[in-house]
Computed example of a mutant assay.
Amino acid sequence: MYETETNPTYQQIARSIEFLTENFRGQPSLADVADRANLSEYHFQRLFSDWAGVSPKKFLQYLTLDFAKERLRRGLTLAEAADEAGLSGTGRLHDLFVVLEGVTPGQFKQAGNGLTIRYAVFESPFGPYVLGAIGDKICKLEFLDEVEPTDEISLAERFITDWPEARLLPDAASLRPLATTIFAETGRKPLRILVKASPFQLKVWEALLRIPEGQVVSYDQIASAIGMPAASRAVGTAIGSNPVGYLIPCHRVIRKTGLFGNYRWGTTRKTALLGWEAAYAAK
Protein backbone atom coordinates (compact mmCIF):
# COMPACT_ATOMS: atom_id res chain seq x y z
CA MET A 1 0.00 0.00 0.00
CA TYR A 2 2.79 2.43 0.87
CA GLU A 3 6.21 2.81 -0.67
CA THR A 4 8.11 2.83 2.61
CA GLU A 5 11.31 0.99 1.74
CA THR A 6 14.10 1.90 4.10
CA ASN A 7 16.61 4.33 2.74
CA PRO A 8 19.91 3.64 4.54
CA THR A 9 21.71 6.12 2.31
CA TYR A 10 19.90 9.17 3.64
CA GLN A 11 20.15 8.01 7.26
CA GLN A 12 23.92 7.57 6.89
CA ILE A 13 24.20 10.93 5.15
CA ALA A 14 22.06 12.56 7.84
CA ARG A 15 24.35 11.31 10.62
CA SER A 16 27.39 12.66 8.81
CA ILE A 17 25.66 16.02 8.16
CA GLU A 18 24.82 16.32 11.86
CA PHE A 19 28.48 15.68 12.66
CA LEU A 20 29.69 18.19 10.05
CA THR A 21 27.22 20.83 11.23
CA GLU A 22 28.35 20.49 14.83
CA ASN A 23 32.08 20.34 14.04
CA PHE A 24 32.66 22.26 10.80
CA ARG A 25 34.83 24.89 12.50
CA GLY A 26 37.28 22.16 13.38
CA GLN A 27 37.40 20.99 9.74
CA PRO A 28 37.03 17.27 10.55
CA SER A 29 38.91 14.80 8.39
CA LEU A 30 37.30 12.40 5.94
CA ALA A 31 38.15 9.56 8.34
CA ASP A 32 36.31 11.29 11.19
CA VAL A 33 33.15 11.79 9.15
CA ALA A 34 33.24 8.32 7.57
CA ASP A 35 33.52 6.80 11.02
CA ARG A 36 30.31 8.59 12.05
CA ALA A 37 28.54 6.97 9.08
CA ASN A 38 30.03 3.55 9.95
CA LEU A 39 31.68 3.30 6.55
CA SER A 40 35.21 3.07 5.20
CA GLU A 41 36.66 6.32 3.86
CA TYR A 42 36.44 5.04 0.28
CA HIS A 43 32.80 3.94 0.49
CA PHE A 44 31.76 7.05 2.38
CA GLN A 45 33.42 9.37 -0.14
CA ARG A 46 31.63 7.61 -3.00
CA LEU A 47 28.27 7.42 -1.22
CA PHE A 48 28.33 11.07 -0.20
CA SER A 49 29.44 12.28 -3.63
CA ASP A 50 26.70 10.25 -5.31
CA TRP A 51 24.11 11.78 -2.97
CA ALA A 52 25.28 15.40 -2.88
CA GLY A 53 27.00 15.68 -6.24
CA VAL A 54 30.11 17.03 -4.52
CA SER A 55 32.73 15.69 -2.12
CA PRO A 56 32.23 15.87 1.65
CA LYS A 57 34.97 18.52 1.77
CA LYS A 58 33.14 20.73 -0.72
CA PHE A 59 29.84 20.18 1.06
CA LEU A 60 31.52 21.23 4.31
CA GLN A 61 32.21 24.62 2.74
CA TYR A 62 28.48 25.06 2.17
CA LEU A 63 27.82 24.57 5.87
CA THR A 64 30.05 27.33 7.15
CA LEU A 65 28.58 30.44 8.68
CA ASP A 66 30.67 32.64 6.38
CA PHE A 67 29.17 30.95 3.32
CA ALA A 68 25.63 31.59 4.52
CA LYS A 69 26.42 35.21 5.36
CA GLU A 70 28.03 35.76 1.98
CA ARG A 71 24.94 34.36 0.24
CA LEU A 72 22.74 36.74 2.21
CA ARG A 73 24.99 39.72 1.44
CA ARG A 74 25.10 39.19 -2.31
CA GLY A 75 21.62 37.72 -2.65
CA LEU A 76 19.38 39.24 -5.28
CA THR A 77 16.15 40.87 -4.27
CA LEU A 78 13.20 38.57 -4.87
CA ALA A 79 12.04 40.81 -7.71
CA GLU A 80 15.45 40.53 -9.39
CA ALA A 81 15.43 36.78 -8.90
CA ALA A 82 12.03 36.54 -10.58
CA ASP A 83 13.26 38.60 -13.54
CA GLU A 84 16.35 36.45 -13.94
CA ALA A 85 14.30 33.30 -13.70
CA GLY A 86 12.42 34.31 -16.83
CA LEU A 87 15.68 34.76 -18.73
CA SER A 88 17.98 32.08 -17.39
CA GLY A 89 16.24 29.03 -18.81
CA THR A 90 17.82 26.87 -16.11
CA GLY A 91 14.61 25.02 -15.38
CA ARG A 92 15.79 24.54 -11.79
CA LEU A 93 14.06 27.53 -10.22
CA HIS A 94 10.90 26.69 -8.35
CA ASP A 95 8.91 29.55 -9.81
CA LEU A 96 9.42 28.06 -13.27
CA PHE A 97 7.68 24.79 -12.55
CA VAL A 98 5.47 25.16 -9.45
CA VAL A 99 2.08 26.88 -9.59
CA LEU A 100 0.58 27.75 -6.21
CA GLU A 101 -3.19 28.06 -5.86
CA GLY A 102 -5.32 28.90 -2.84
CA VAL A 103 -8.74 27.36 -2.39
CA THR A 104 -11.77 29.54 -3.08
CA PRO A 105 -13.75 30.97 -0.12
CA GLY A 106 -16.46 28.41 -0.88
CA GLN A 107 -13.98 25.52 -0.86
CA PHE A 108 -12.46 26.89 2.35
CA LYS A 109 -15.86 26.88 4.04
CA GLN A 110 -16.68 23.37 2.85
CA ALA A 111 -13.49 22.07 4.54
CA GLY A 112 -12.93 19.51 1.81
CA ASN A 113 -16.50 18.25 1.61
CA GLY A 114 -16.96 16.48 -1.74
CA LEU A 115 -13.19 16.21 -2.35
CA THR A 116 -11.05 13.07 -2.39
CA ILE A 117 -7.46 13.26 -1.15
CA ARG A 118 -5.20 10.45 -2.33
CA TYR A 119 -2.14 9.90 -0.16
CA ALA A 120 0.85 7.61 0.26
CA VAL A 121 4.42 7.52 1.58
CA PHE A 122 7.37 7.65 -0.81
CA GLU A 123 11.15 7.87 -0.54
CA SER A 124 13.20 10.96 -1.41
CA PRO A 125 16.88 11.94 -1.22
CA PHE A 126 15.96 13.37 2.20
CA GLY A 127 14.13 10.40 3.64
CA PRO A 128 10.48 9.28 3.45
CA TYR A 129 7.63 11.74 3.02
CA VAL A 130 3.85 11.62 2.92
CA LEU A 131 2.34 13.00 -0.27
CA GLY A 132 -1.29 14.09 -0.60
CA ALA A 133 -3.07 15.22 -3.77
CA ILE A 134 -6.51 16.45 -4.82
CA GLY A 135 -6.80 15.48 -8.44
CA ASP A 136 -3.48 16.49 -9.99
CA LYS A 137 -2.81 19.17 -7.35
CA ILE A 138 -0.49 18.54 -4.41
CA CYS A 139 -2.02 19.55 -1.09
CA LYS A 140 0.57 18.10 1.29
CA LEU A 141 4.23 17.05 1.36
CA GLU A 142 5.58 16.31 4.82
CA PHE A 143 8.89 14.61 5.55
CA LEU A 144 8.82 11.76 8.06
CA ASP A 145 11.31 10.72 10.70
CA GLU A 146 12.28 7.08 11.13
CA VAL A 147 10.23 6.74 14.33
CA GLU A 148 7.01 8.24 12.98
CA PRO A 149 4.17 5.77 12.31
CA THR A 150 3.09 5.26 8.71
CA ASP A 151 -0.06 3.24 9.31
CA GLU A 152 -3.24 4.33 7.55
CA ILE A 153 -4.82 6.01 10.61
CA SER A 154 -1.69 7.99 11.53
CA LEU A 155 -1.23 9.26 7.98
CA ALA A 156 -4.90 10.18 7.61
CA GLU A 157 -4.71 12.30 10.78
CA ARG A 158 -2.25 14.61 9.02
CA PHE A 159 -5.02 15.81 6.71
CA ILE A 160 -7.84 16.27 9.23
CA THR A 161 -6.94 19.78 10.41
CA ASP A 162 -7.03 21.36 6.95
CA TRP A 163 -9.47 19.00 5.23
CA PRO A 164 -11.75 17.51 7.91
CA GLU A 165 -14.62 16.71 5.52
CA ALA A 166 -12.57 15.27 2.67
CA ARG A 167 -12.61 11.59 1.70
CA LEU A 168 -9.15 10.12 2.32
CA LEU A 169 -7.92 7.37 0.03
CA PRO A 170 -4.56 5.57 0.35
CA ASP A 171 -3.39 5.17 -3.23
CA ALA A 172 0.34 4.79 -3.85
CA ALA A 173 -0.13 3.38 -7.35
CA SER A 174 -1.86 6.42 -8.86
CA LEU A 175 0.42 8.90 -7.04
CA ARG A 176 3.69 7.25 -8.06
CA PRO A 177 4.09 9.16 -11.39
CA LEU A 178 3.60 12.44 -9.51
CA ALA A 179 6.05 11.41 -6.79
CA THR A 180 8.79 10.55 -9.30
CA THR A 181 8.55 14.06 -10.76
CA ILE A 182 8.99 15.98 -7.50
CA PHE A 183 12.67 15.26 -6.82
CA ALA A 184 13.73 14.65 -10.43
CA GLU A 185 16.99 16.36 -11.34
CA THR A 186 16.16 16.50 -15.03
CA GLY A 187 13.00 16.47 -17.10
CA ARG A 188 10.91 18.23 -14.49
CA LYS A 189 7.27 18.82 -15.30
CA PRO A 190 5.08 21.68 -14.05
CA LEU A 191 3.50 20.90 -10.68
CA ARG A 192 0.37 22.45 -9.21
CA ILE A 193 -0.14 23.01 -5.48
CA LEU A 194 -3.51 23.60 -3.81
CA VAL A 195 -3.48 24.93 -0.24
CA LYS A 196 -5.87 26.29 2.36
CA ALA A 197 -4.35 29.59 3.40
CA SER A 198 -5.01 33.17 4.38
CA PRO A 199 -4.12 35.90 1.85
CA PHE A 200 -1.07 36.72 4.00
CA GLN A 201 0.16 33.12 4.01
CA LEU A 202 -0.24 32.92 0.24
CA LYS A 203 1.83 36.09 -0.19
CA VAL A 204 4.62 34.64 1.93
CA TRP A 205 4.60 31.27 0.18
CA GLU A 206 4.55 32.90 -3.26
CA ALA A 207 7.61 34.93 -2.23
CA LEU A 208 9.37 31.71 -1.26
CA LEU A 209 8.81 30.33 -4.75
CA ARG A 210 10.86 33.21 -6.18
CA ILE A 211 14.03 32.28 -4.26
CA PRO A 212 16.41 30.55 -6.70
CA GLU A 213 17.96 27.23 -5.74
CA GLY A 214 21.33 27.74 -4.10
CA GLN A 215 20.26 31.08 -2.63
CA VAL A 216 19.01 31.96 0.85
CA VAL A 217 17.14 34.96 2.22
CA SER A 218 16.30 36.20 5.69
CA TYR A 219 12.87 36.52 7.29
CA ASP A 220 13.26 40.30 7.10
CA GLN A 221 13.90 40.11 3.35
CA ILE A 222 10.72 38.10 2.83
CA ALA A 223 8.75 40.63 4.91
CA SER A 224 10.11 43.48 2.78
CA ALA A 225 9.41 41.58 -0.45
CA ILE A 226 5.70 41.32 0.37
CA GLY A 227 5.52 45.01 1.31
CA MET A 228 5.29 44.44 5.09
CA PRO A 229 8.80 45.10 6.44
CA ALA A 230 7.64 45.11 10.08
CA ALA A 231 6.01 41.69 9.81
CA SER A 232 9.06 39.39 10.04
CA ARG A 233 7.61 37.53 13.06
CA ALA A 234 4.33 36.89 11.22
CA VAL A 235 6.36 35.81 8.19
CA GLY A 236 8.13 33.25 10.37
CA THR A 237 4.79 31.88 11.55
CA ALA A 238 3.52 31.59 7.97
CA ILE A 239 6.70 29.83 6.90
CA GLY A 240 6.41 27.41 9.81
CA SER A 241 2.86 26.46 8.79
CA ASN A 242 3.79 25.58 5.21
CA PRO A 243 2.02 22.27 4.39
CA VAL A 244 4.09 21.46 1.29
CA GLY A 245 7.76 20.97 2.07
CA TYR A 246 10.52 21.35 -0.52
CA LEU A 247 8.22 22.55 -3.34
CA ILE A 248 7.31 25.63 -1.30
CA PRO A 249 10.96 26.13 -0.29
CA CYS A 250 10.75 27.40 3.29
CA HIS A 251 14.15 25.77 3.88
CA ARG A 252 15.75 28.67 1.94
CA VAL A 253 14.91 31.19 4.66
CA ILE A 254 17.54 31.59 7.37
CA ARG A 255 18.30 34.05 10.12
CA LYS A 256 19.94 37.31 9.12
CA THR A 257 22.95 36.31 11.24
CA GLY A 258 23.64 33.52 8.72
CA LEU A 259 22.53 30.72 11.05
CA PHE A 260 20.21 28.21 9.40
CA GLY A 261 17.73 28.25 12.28
CA ASN A 262 14.85 25.88 12.92
CA TYR A 263 12.92 23.88 10.36
CA ARG A 264 9.59 22.13 10.66
CA TRP A 265 11.11 18.85 9.50
CA GLY A 266 14.39 19.09 11.38
CA THR A 267 17.53 21.21 11.20
CA THR A 268 19.57 18.32 9.76
CA ARG A 269 17.15 17.94 6.86
CA LYS A 270 17.21 21.72 6.25
CA THR A 271 20.99 21.61 6.15
CA ALA A 272 20.87 18.67 3.74
CA LEU A 273 18.42 20.50 1.45
CA LEU A 274 20.48 23.70 1.38
CA GLY A 275 23.77 21.90 0.81
CA TRP A 276 22.27 19.66 -1.89
CA GLU A 277 20.83 22.66 -3.75
CA ALA A 278 24.00 24.71 -3.37
CA ALA A 279 26.00 21.85 -4.86
CA TYR A 280 23.79 21.65 -7.93
CA ALA A 281 23.57 25.43 -8.34
CA ALA A 282 27.38 25.60 -8.36
CA LYS A 283 27.67 23.15 -11.29
Results as ranks from 00 to 15, higher is better:
residue 157 E to W: 08
residue 184 A to C: 04
residue 156 A to W: 03
residue 158 R to F: 10
residue 177 P to A: 05
residue 148 E to L: 11
residue 148 E to Q: 13
residue 181 T to P: 02
residue 171 D to A: 14
residue 186 T to L: 09
residue 125 P to F: 04
residue 132 G to L: 00
residue 130 V to L: 12
residue 157 E to R: 08
residue 143 F to M: 14
residue 191 L to I: 15
residue 125 P to V: 07
residue 164 P to F: 05
residue 174 S to T: 11
residue 165 E to N: 14
residue 137 K to D: 13
residue 128 P to T: 13
residue 121 V to I: 14
residue 129 Y to T: 05
residue 108 F to G: 14
residue 181 T to S: 08
residue 109 K to N: 11
residue 133 A to Y: 03
residue 116 T to R: 10
residue 118 R to H: 10
residue 131 L to N: 03
residue 191 L to F: 13
residue 177 P to I: 00
residue 186 T to C: 11
residue 124 S to W: 00
residue 178 L to I: 03
residue 169 L to G: 10
residue 170 P to E: 08
residue 181 T to L: 08
residue 166 A to I: 08
residue 163 W to L: 13
residue 169 L to D: 13
residue 192 R to M: 06
residue 134 I to R: 02
residue 147 V to W: 15
residue 186 T to W: 07
residue 115 L to Q: 12
residue 125 P to D: 04
residue 141 L to F: 07
residue 133 A to R: 01
residue 176 R to P: 11
residue 146 E to W: 14
residue 111 A to P: 13
residue 126 F to S: 05
residue 123 E to A: 06
residue 168 L to W: 11
residue 161 T to D: 13
residue 118 R to C: 08
residue 163 W to T: 13
residue 149 P to G: 04
residue 160 I to G: 09
residue 145 D to Q: 14
residue 124 S to C: 01
residue 149 P to K: 02
residue 105 P to F: 06
residue 171 D to M: 10
residue 179 A to F: 01
residue 193 I to Q: 03
residue 168 L to Q: 09
residue 154 S to M: 03
residue 106 G to K: 09
residue 168 L to P: 10
residue 193 I to S: 02
residue 161 T to K: 15
residue 132 G to T: 03
residue 198 S to Y: 01
residue 120 A to E: 08
residue 183 F to N: 01
residue 108 F to E: 15
residue 154 S to E: 00
residue 135 G to I: 05
residue 144 L to P: 07
residue 123 E to H: 05
residue 159 F to I: 14
residue 175 L to W: 07
residue 119 Y to L: 02
residue 135 G to E: 00
residue 121 V to W: 08
residue 189 K to T: 12
residue 185 E to W: 08
residue 160 I to M: 09
residue 167 R to A: 11
residue 127 G to P: 13
residue 137 K to P: 05
residue 138 I to T: 03
residue 179 A to N: 03
residue 126 F to K: 00
residue 151 D to F: 05
residue 133 A to T: 03
residue 164 P to C: 10
residue 143 F to S: 07
residue 122 F to E: 00
residue 173 A to G: 11
residue 112 G to R: 12
residue 152 E to A: 05
residue 190 P to M: 12
residue 197 A to L: 02
residue 132 G to W: 01
residue 168 L to C: 10
residue 199 P to E: 02
residue 153 I to L: 15
residue 116 T to P: 09
residue 133 A to D: 00
residue 149 P to L: 06
residue 179 A to P: 09
residue 177 P to L: 05
residue 153 I to P: 10
residue 174 S to A: 12
residue 128 P to C: 11
residue 114 G to E: 03
residue 176 R to M: 14
residue 137 K to I: 10
residue 194 L to F: 09
residue 105 P to Y: 07
residue 184 A to P: 00
residue 150 T to H: 10
residue 197 A to Y: 04
